[in-house]
Design a protein around this nucleic acid. Structure first.
Lengths: 159, 159
DNA sequence: GTCGCTGCAAAGTCTTTGCAGAGAG
DNA sequence: CTCTCTGCAAAGACTTTGCAGCGAC
């Protein structure tokens, strides 16, 4: 069996899981499962990028032009997903926030100040120290975020 | 000599240094040294908090009611200071940014999700790892920021 | 005196909200 | 059927900009 098919199946299973989590969440809160909400989740899932509400909205309009999804619904759904910790938002320098699915593994971000691209990474030593520091300061740590800013390889070459 | 006096002198010297840096910066760019710009720098310096443009503006209005400093000037001056790396901005969750003087030592932030207070800390091990990671990913690192979110001691007690 | 700065108000962004009709359960 | 959602447009919040007079140099 070719790798691509395996990958596809794995992703399909993963997405189904995510979708079912989402449905449970909605049911638990007496909210309805709508096509717009599904499309937003799916688009977030299929994007490797960190999306702004606006870029997410554009992607959806391109893929489902007949749905006429409103930007307000995108904001409302992102707020819902963020409240229930299914997505995480990143805010930095520029105006606006970028969102990503929180279901993916935890990681930190390296942000290129030239092109705006974001590379993800994890470092166990840092993760460990963070917990220690929170303990020392008497904080009950719930989350953290770390960004390294700089110029990425590609942009260094350009200059 | 009492400690307080020593402290005061030390702070005065430090502020004079900062002010003179600011003046050099202005001169270098053919900009003018105005009372508003000084007041903004001074207020930032004397605040231990991380200030939003609005809170900075309020502080200034309280302390110098006759100056009638406009919020637009606060924004313009903060942008100027940030461009020249004299202040750093933090943006997270909520709307808007908070600013702090960058001349102070580098540090990271621990943010209480209950009361919004910010505690500063530095950890050498983390600083070191960050440089290593940037190197490994081919990034030319210019800066970084790290935030730990959680509930501070005080708020844990309240609950 | 010149040229940049300031406050004001108006214009921009990005985000949220109110509402009437559409649609999920 | 009921009660939540949605798209739209209007309202909000925060930030930036244009302009005429003011003030640093």
């Amino acid at each position: 069996m070719p790798d691509i098919t395996t990958d596809f199946n794995a992703r399909t299973v993963e997405y189904k899981q995510l979708l079912s989590d989402f449905k449970s969440l909605l049911k638990k809160n007496n909210l309805k499962f709508t096509i717009q909400r599904e499309v937003i989740l799916e688009t977030l899932y299929n994007s490797d990028e960190h999306l702004t509400p606006e870029s997410l909205h554009h992607l959806i309009q391109e893929k489902y032009p007949d749905l006429k999804t409103g930007i307000a619904t995108v904001y409302r759904t992102l707020a819902l997903l963020e409240d229930s910790s299914m997505v995480t938002s990143l805010s930095f320098g520029a105006q606006g926030k970028k969102y990503e699915l929180g279901a993916k593994n935890h990681h930190d971000h390296m942000i290129c100040t030239e092109c705006g691209n974001i590379t993800e990474f994890v470092d166990e030593q840092i993760e460990e120290r963070q917990h220690k520091i929170a303990d020392e300061l008497g904080f009950k740590m719930s989350d953290h975020s770390m960004q390294i800013y700089g110029v990425c390889k590609k942009c260094q070459t350009k200059q």
